[in-house]
Simulated assay, not measured.
Amino acid sequence: MSYLSPKLVTDIFLNPGDLYFGGPNVRVRTLLGSCVSIVLWHPKLHIGGMCHYLLVTKGDKNASGQPQGKYGEDAFQFLLNSVKSHLAPISEYEAKVFGGSNMFSKNERTLIDPMNESNSKLVGIRNIEFAKDILQKHSIKLVSENTAGVTHRKVFFTIWDGEVWLESHQDS
């Protein structure tokens, strides 16, 4: 059964470090480079969310002591807390992962030595690995991904049907 798009749609743009989780009349969108977005969606309840994190490693809390969405650990914890508040098991959600590009210029990419351990795990790759590892750890099915490469991506997630559309452009 196809879920019809709502008559009134709320459009939410996520900047780096932003998070959203909610109901079916929402379209969430963002722009990614080396950052990664994890999208969670519940196919029966038509609820879901997206995070946009910059780095894997958890940094210091902000002045109020709250987690910061710019870190993958904090962003995923926000999604987990949102799922728990909607009383549906996390195992019923589907996940999609986007981003993690190498955003160095073409000339800079050729200077990177892949045998050098400090260069072999670029930010984008570490972000992708974190997303896949945390989803597997929580037994969340990864149904789609568009990751790595050297492009930036515009991501559009419609919560009413769980669809994600991408626009990607290779930087020159």
Rank of each mutant, 00 (worst) to 15 (best):
L14N: 01
E163Y: 11
S85W: 03
E163K: 14
I125C: 06
S144V: 08
N25F: 12
S64Q: 14
S34I: 00
L122N: 14
I112S: 13
S37H: 00
P43A: 11
T147A: 02
I159T: 08
F21Y: 15
D60W: 05
E145C: 15
S139Q: 15
L135V: 13
M1D: 11
H52M: 00
V83E: 05
N62D: 15
V155I: 07
R27K: 12
V155G: 03
V39L: 07
R27G: 03
F156M: 06
S64I: 14
T30R: 00
S91I: 13
S2P: 07
G65Q: 04
T57L: 09
W160E: 08
R153E: 02
P89S: 15
K154T: 04
L142M: 08
I134M: 10
H138M: 11
A95P: 09
S101I: 03
L166I: 13
T57G: 05
S5V: 06
E92R: 13
F104V: 07
L87D: 13
N146F: 11
S91K: 15
E108S: 12
T151C: 04
I90F: 08
H152N: 01
E163T: 15
N127Y: 15
T10H: 10
G49S: 02
L4C: 13
T30P: 00
S2M: 06
E94N: 13
A63T: 14
K70N: 07
S118D: 11
L87T: 12
L79W: 13
G65D: 09
L45P: 01
K44N: 14
V39Q: 07
Q77G: 12
P24H: 03
D161E: 10
S101D: 06
E145F: 06
Y93A: 12
N25T: 12
L79N: 11
